[in-house]
Design a protein around this nucleic acid. Structure first.
Lengths: 197, 197
DNA sequence: AAGTCTCCCTAGCAAGTGCTTGGTAGGGTA
DNA sequence: TACCCTACCAAGCACTTGCTAGGGAGACTT
């Protein structure tokens, strides 16, 4: 009934491997032969583990999004104020960039194209969830007088969303700058601006 | 000696067309047959106008970057203060998103991969120029007391760069929100933050 | 009238694409 | 002994990729 560890181990290994390749070279530019080469097997052998190249990407993205939104739900459930919630969500996002850079990169770079396939319909749902999350935080914050009243909430949402995720392009998990450092710096700019008082 | 208008017209037509396709579907996913179909000709006929698919992308990106950096140079040459320069550069960038969304999208999405080809070495140079531009503006601003002293200039540069360009993903040139509207909102957040005083 | 140039077509090639097939070595289970 | 499982290989199929060779119709130039 339970999955045997050994079975999932090889799958997970191959998924991690292909996630890195997808992130580096892009989904379409990564061939099944590339993946197989990296794994030290032949391309046909991949199809013992997976139905298709597409299903590999699916599994990678699904796993990532499930974990990410699990974290978001915990934060929202904690039910702190808008500002604390915003800070926690931003911190959690940068943390996911730190821990799963490949998955974030794939989500960033390939989602737009994959979303068009029926199989990846859930990406649209996740986007809607994400948008709702941010709109709630920002709207609550404006209502409570924590955020400026003249904000275009929809626009601010887009700015935050894009700015946070796009950091995956330059963030180095092994670098001296930690994810929480980046989050603090970013929140400093976002909340108080770069202009001197 | 001079190029005949008709000659460049057809080229320009095909370039605009392929730029749109590259932006929508991505460079690798756009086939020469896709481009030819959109132009109403056969794929082989494209090679009367261009050496290769790669040279089409090259010409598109080069044209865009030359224009963009021309504008930047004018702004820097005007030699206003750091804050005004920053505002002008941001405004010019959003304006280029408005006028050439396809080119910006291509630059955003494909530069990373194209840069690895010797032919596209100039992308690295342009990146260096861009970085220098922003570092100068920010460093000068900190020196003059216009920007906060505790800024990590390198980090702020990355945030601004990415945030501005990534807007091409959602900005709609035909929408109600103009490029200067977006620039104003963005500068409001960047300079003064979203938190209420 | 002859030549040249632009723009396109017909037809195809070599290299690569995702994926399928039949088969096998090694291990565990009854 | 008989059976099944996991993980893989060898070979190749149908199709797509960027690109090429050679030619032809029409407009312009000389």
């Amino acid at each position: 009934m339970r999955e045997v560890p050994v079975k999932t181990s090889r799958r997970a290994e191959l998924l991690t491997l292909s996630a890195n390749l997808f992130a580096e070279r892009g989904y379409v530019s990564t061939t099944v032969r590339d993946i197989a080469d990296a794994a030290g097997i032949l391309s046909g052998s991949l199809y013992h583990h997976f139905d298709s190249k597409e299903s590999m990407a699916d599994e990678i993205i699904t796993g990532f999004l499930d974990e990410l939104f699990g974290t978001y739900e915990e934060i929202v459930a904690a039910d702190h104020g808008p500002r604390e919630t915003l800070e926690a969500v931003v911190a959690a996002s940068f943390d996911s960039i730190h821990r799963r850079p490949a998955e974030v990169a794939i989500y960033q770079n390939e989602a737009k194209h994959l979303m068009q396939l029926p199989r990846f319909d859930y990406l649209n749902q996740r986007n809607a969830e994400f948008r709702k999350l941010w709109n709630t935080i920002l709207t609550d914050g404006v209502r409570d007088g924590v955020f400026r009243a003249d904000l275009d909430v929809e626009l601010v949402y887009r700015f935050i969303r894009d700015t946070v995720w796009v950091a995956v392009r330059w963030y180095n998990p092994e670098g001296t700058l930690s994810a929480s450092d980046v989050a603090k710096q970013y929140l400093g700019i976002l909340l108080d601006g770069i202009a001197k008082r």
